[in-house]
């Protein structure tokens, strides 16, 4: 089975790698690019722990082959903070206690990134519906919803309170 040479941009950095076609995108991210912030949970596209952005759209990287990202741009949790400043979503999760064990958090934040990009002022229902493909077994979701609302307010330039 022939290997493929692929080029992709990860968090702004260009990579050229040679991969087996069956290599999953999440394994490329974690084991080849060493970006271990992206987690593997269920490995069956249910839990959302492996969620990243592919050309700005949230996808579950356990259910894509790495070759499908050829010529594309991916963003992982490591790509959010800029110049030592946490992204508003990261800040929101921290301030609102939007995590306990933290396993779902990178996926939850990446999914929320696209949600806020499409809908900067979501209702609570839209947030809950928007993260419906990301499972959290600790928080009961209430503080995650608050964290996303915190980020939405901060990104609109409004005063924020946890």
């Amino acid at each position: 089975m022939s290997k493929k040479s692929i080029t992709l941009k990860a968090n702004g950095a260009e990579h050229n790698v040679i991969v087996e076609p069956r290599l999953l995108l999440v394994h490329l991210i974690r084991e080849v690019l060493n970006l271990t912030g992206t987690h593997i949970g269920c490995d069956t596209s249910n839990c959302g722990a492996c969620t990243i952005l592919l050309n700005g759209k949230s996808v579950k990287s356990c259910t894509l082959f790495a070759v499908q990202a050829n010529g594309k741009e991916i963003t992982t949790i490591e790509g959010l903070a800029q110049g030592g400043q946490l992204h508003p979503l990261q800040e929101g999760f921290k301030e609102c206690h939007g995590l306990q064990c933290g396993f779902c958090t990178p996926g939850m934040i990446m999914r929320s990134c696209e949600l806020l990009a499409n809908n900067p002022d979501p209702t609570e229902e839209e947030i809950r519906w928007g993260i419906s493909g990301n499972l959290c077994r600790c928080t009961g979701y209430n503080n995650i919803v608050k964290a996303v609302q915190y980020a939405a307010n901060k990104m609109k330039g409004e005063a924020v309170t946890a």
Partner: peptide, 12 residues
Amino acid sequence: SKLIADPSVRNM
């Protein structure tokens, strides 16, 4: 479409 899987799966 809103009942098919979840938003990230629907992106693919």
